[in-house]
Amino acid sequence: MIIDILSWICLLAGGALGIIGGVGIYRFPDFYSRLHAAGITDTLCAMLILLGLGLQAGWGIAAFKLALIFVFLFFTSPTASHALANAALHSGLKPKLDMESRHD
């Protein structure tokens, strides 16, 4: 019962985070800031949803596979984000920076 409630909370929070990340990728001003919003859906949203599903599945092959998906996302998503940002910077896409709060 407690596990059920926990997993529902995880699933709902994950879904909500996904939508918020989607709003972020829609609202933010430039490519680099959008990358941060996409980061939300790649990290905590995915983790919570997979954790919620894992709690529903219980111990077994299904939970192992969910953990594996989690690990793959955990290792590949930052690599993809980094490569994307790196490629964008090298091709000359300038980030919109907040100049007022900069000291230098």
Binding site: Y32, L35, H36, A37, G39, I40, T43, L44, F74, F75, S77, P78, T79, S81, H82, A85, N86, L89
Partner: peptide, 13 residues
């Protein structure tokens, strides 16, 4: 660098 990118709000370029 991976840890920096994994935490949203910062991306290592």
């Amino acid at each position: 660098a991976n840890a920096i990118t994994l935490t949203p709000g910062t991306v290592s370029i």
